[in-house]
Design a protein around this nucleic acid. Sequence first.
DNA 1: CGCATGCGGGAAATCGCTTTCTCGTCCTGT
DNA 2: ACAGGACGAGAAAGCGATTTCCCGCATGCG
Lengths: 339, 339
Amino acid sequence: MRDVARIAGVSIATISRVLHDSPLVDPTTAQRVQSIIRDLNYIPNTTGTALKSGKSGIFGLIVPELSNPFFADFVKHFEREVVEHGQDMMLAFTDHSPVQIQQCVRRMLMRGVEGIALLDSEIGTRSYETMLRNRIPLVTLNRLQSEPGVSDIAVDATPGMTAAIAHLIGLGHRHIGFLGGKGEERISVARTNSFREAMAANKLPILEQAIVNAEFQLEGGYYAMERVLVQAPSCTAVLCANDMSALGAIRALRSHRRSVPEDFSVIGLDDIALCTLVEPAMTTLRLSRQDMARKYLRELMQLRESPHKPGRKIMVGLELIVRDSTSKAPSQRRKSFRG
Amino acid sequence: MRDVARIAGVSIATISRVLHDSPLVDPTTAQRVQSIIRDLNYIPNTTGTALKSGKSGIFGLIVPELSNPFFADFVKHFEREVVEHGQDMMLAFTDHSPVQIQQCVRRMLMRGVEGIALLDSEIGTRSYETMLRNRIPLVTLNRLQSEPGVSDIAVDATPGMTAAIAHLIGLGHRHIGFLGGKGEERISVARTNSFREAMAANKLPILEQAIVNAEFQLEGGYYAMERVLVQAPSCTAVLCANDMSALGAIRALRSHRRSVPEDFSVIGLDDIALCTLVEPAMTTLRLSRQDMARKYLRELMQLRESPHKPGRKIMVGLELIVRDSTSKAPSQRRKSFRG
DNA sequence: CGCATGCGGGAAATCGCTTTCTCGTCCTGT
DNA sequence: ACAGGACGAGAAAGCGATTTCCCGCATGCG
């Protein structure tokens, strides 16, 4: 910067003004400075800016891991959004461990991030109290509670599931199961509740034997599906808490000589890329990562503007994407064969 | 920091010394300062450090995207390595576009990264010449060339493929195909060459009709496999340039009523998590992400120490992981039925 | 008892940038 | 023709941390 100033025969103050398109500088001078900047290949150093202004221009993003394609997608969209707003992203992983999160929050505070998007809903509040004391905006996931400076974005699965069940009812299904999440996890409980509400909204009785935990994983879905086949033989369709468990369910059905969708319909949740790559392409409830990423950043930026304001609770919905893993219920199918 | 100093009744210089375990400070004082730091929940601000020392403590990582599980894994391991060395990571995506890379290199230089790991081998040199002028270490992928301050880490697939082919030969296969990469891409050409060398090393003739591009994607693998079935009907096994195309190949075989591994053997490359989740679990050539991430960081740190030193060319190998997508060749199988 | 040595610790400059305050010059209006 | 305003641009302070240089006090030795 000093070099540029020296060569242009102006002061570094002017360089700074040129870089910020300040109207206080003569257009001719600005031109000259600009071309010298290009010639020298000068790249401004954000460290200085950050130190002076107290604004690092960095937002933190904390996700459990990256092997779940949902998070991988989210990271990509969040990064893009952040960059489009002229900021940068700092990424960290919790590996589902509270001590990891403690450490990565600390690293982020050291770097002076201006807000954190925390996408792990299963972590206690103790770990991030430090942050609150440090007064930096936080946006959580599926916590359903907000405080000053802390907003929450939660997935409201009920309307989407209601639509999914209506879709199944339209295909003749009456006995519908749910392959849920993992034990007492917040997200798991929420989705199971949504399923119950969605069944009620469709005036369908709930088959308790057909509600089984699936761990959000492929294997979990496999074993959960096997249990449903045994415990609730009348069941002809399942909704799943996420796509991975739905894929496991399809695999289990295939092992047990039940073809999808002819004998059994399966609906996933998330709409990961794999959905269109498997055979049959999977019907699912899409949870838009781009939409969520945008909401996270918008919320963080608003909280940054006014850290005093009470945080908001925001809901995002699901969109039913009908593909080939759902079709007429077996009885219905027989009926149409007769007709 | 000033607060801590004031309360401890010392100067900020002492605080700095305590934070760095400098021997120039009385242990008693150090203790006192430490406890005040804890009480105040003081977190040092790396921006100041970075500005003063000229060392940002950040390494940049540029990957094409995150939907490929290979990159997702790599990012995770690289982050962990970087953090274990007390540094931070800055992540960016190229989306396979040269202009994107230009911009993210610029953002990284602005943040003062101390080196960049660039995992996109298909980008021209023009985009990163700026970096060289700015004298920051760079470690590339599969470029097979180095310069002062620029190292390269490349996958040498030949020994691994030689082992894979030996494995197939042991199972009675003689007609082995290769589902390669994408057009003229560096990595694609390299892997196809490795396949040819590995076949030669095993003294097996090359079936030109059984070498087909597969785009590194599931669909690409599907169509490539179909072409091989038509063009080279004697073929009983294929190696693939990566796991995704191998999965596509298996799907194609299934559509054409060829069961894997009974009628046809398939070997992937990468060993992504999906390998053990599909049915049959896939035999593959593992490319260790953790190992690579470690090598990248080590190289970056060495180049940082001595930017004048000529960069190095490093090779990483593959490890054959035998699972269930390979078994005796059909003819062999018949033979053993007879026997 | 005085001086030298050594060690703990403070003052201050500095990193790159922003921004306020101030100044000098030129233009314009009366 | 002169005063005042407008505009372009510089000087300097300061963000948080590091580090050199230097000082003061205590101790040891002559």
